[in-house]
Computed example of a mutant assay.
Amino acid sequence: MRLVLLRLLFVVALPLVLVTAWWLASDDSTDVYWPPLRTILTTFPDVWTGERLRADVLPSLLRLSAGYAAATAVGVALGTVIGSYRRVRAVCEPVLEFLRAVPPPVLVPVIMLFAGIGDTMKIAVIASGCVWPILLNTVEGVRAVDTVMSETARSYGITGTARLRNVVLRSASPQIFAGMRQALSIGIILMVISEMFAASNGLGFTIVQFQRGFAIPDMWTGILVLGLLGFALSVVFRLVERRVLGWYHGQRASSRRSH
């Protein structure tokens, strides 16, 4: 119980310190673009009503989920193939390094030419940025599979799909989840950027509309919603990761105790 309370204190302490510092630093502000935090918090419930959450936050979450899911499926599938075969990896690595170096926001106009200005474009933008950390981490995770484990599985007749699921993907899963964690933050950024182009709803669209209308406190509430959304998604991701990788964290904990 004491350990849980200490962890909760560490989680809450830094946000409280930052909010307090923001409150004190902006308390006497008369700058139009830097309103006091108390003004922003007072405006928040008036702006983010249930109707606006359904109209703007929900579509953003659906686009993020679709793009992230597509990137995960493509990244894990391609990464497993590339990581498993040396010749495929030798051919693909230069192309992957080139494409990874291209910033995803630069691709927005190109994707708009092929996918239009609807939700397909926004999902494609999110997926195009999220796929790289997942793919590259999957490649490295598959390459790092213990050869002794692979040979043992082969000697016991574990081949094909069973080997892929129980040996390769299981061994690579900590690295895959590391890539998925990186991709989540990239996905949130690209979700906002994609909604700033030819959109009619979503968080990015709404924040830009507030900025163009000089509703600065309203704009800041949108930024707060983005921060809260990112925090909530990271907590959910961590819970899922703990559940799926329970064996891995237990193994690490027992290893630390033995040392």
Rank of each mutant, 00 (worst) to 15 (best):
residue 154 R to G: 15
residue 43 T to R: 13
residue 40 I to S: 01
residue 38 R to W: 14
residue 189 I to G: 03
residue 69 A to T: 12
residue 149 M to E: 09
residue 57 V to Y: 05
residue 247 W to R: 04
residue 85 Y to R: 14
residue 251 Q to D: 09
residue 47 V to H: 10
residue 58 L to H: 05
residue 176 I to Y: 03
residue 151 E to G: 10
residue 90 A to D: 09
residue 49 T to E: 10
residue 96 L to G: 09
residue 19 V to W: 03
residue 243 R to H: 07
residue 20 T to L: 15
residue 205 F to K: 05
residue 231 F to P: 04
residue 6 L to S: 12
residue 18 L to I: 13
residue 178 A to I: 15
residue 194 S to Y: 06
residue 152 T to P: 01
residue 222 G to S: 07
residue 238 R to P: 12
residue 89 R to D: 10
residue 118 G to P: 05
residue 151 E to S: 11
residue 80 T to L: 15
residue 5 L to E: 15
residue 179 G to Q: 08
residue 103 P to E: 05
residue 218 D to R: 04
residue 125 V to G: 00
residue 118 G to F: 10
residue 229 L to R: 00
residue 145 V to L: 14
residue 122 K to Q: 08
residue 147 T to R: 14
residue 22 W to T: 14
residue 34 W to S: 06
residue 201 N to Y: 12
residue 188 I to C: 07
residue 213 G to A: 15
residue 42 T to C: 05
residue 12 V to F: 06
residue 192 V to Y: 04
residue 53 L to H: 11
residue 204 G to S: 03
residue 51 E to I: 14
residue 225 V to N: 06
residue 119 D to C: 09
residue 139 V to L: 03
residue 210 F to S: 10
residue 235 V to A: 15
residue 1 M to N: 13
residue 226 L to K: 04
residue 19 V to C: 05
residue 246 G to V: 01
residue 220 W to E: 09
residue 75 G to L: 00
residue 239 L to D: 12
residue 9 L to G: 10
residue 96 L to K: 07
residue 53 L to V: 12
residue 115 A to C: 15
residue 193 I to E: 06
residue 166 N to L: 13
residue 256 R to D: 13
residue 92 C to A: 14
residue 77 A to T: 15
residue 36 P to E: 08
residue 139 V to E: 03
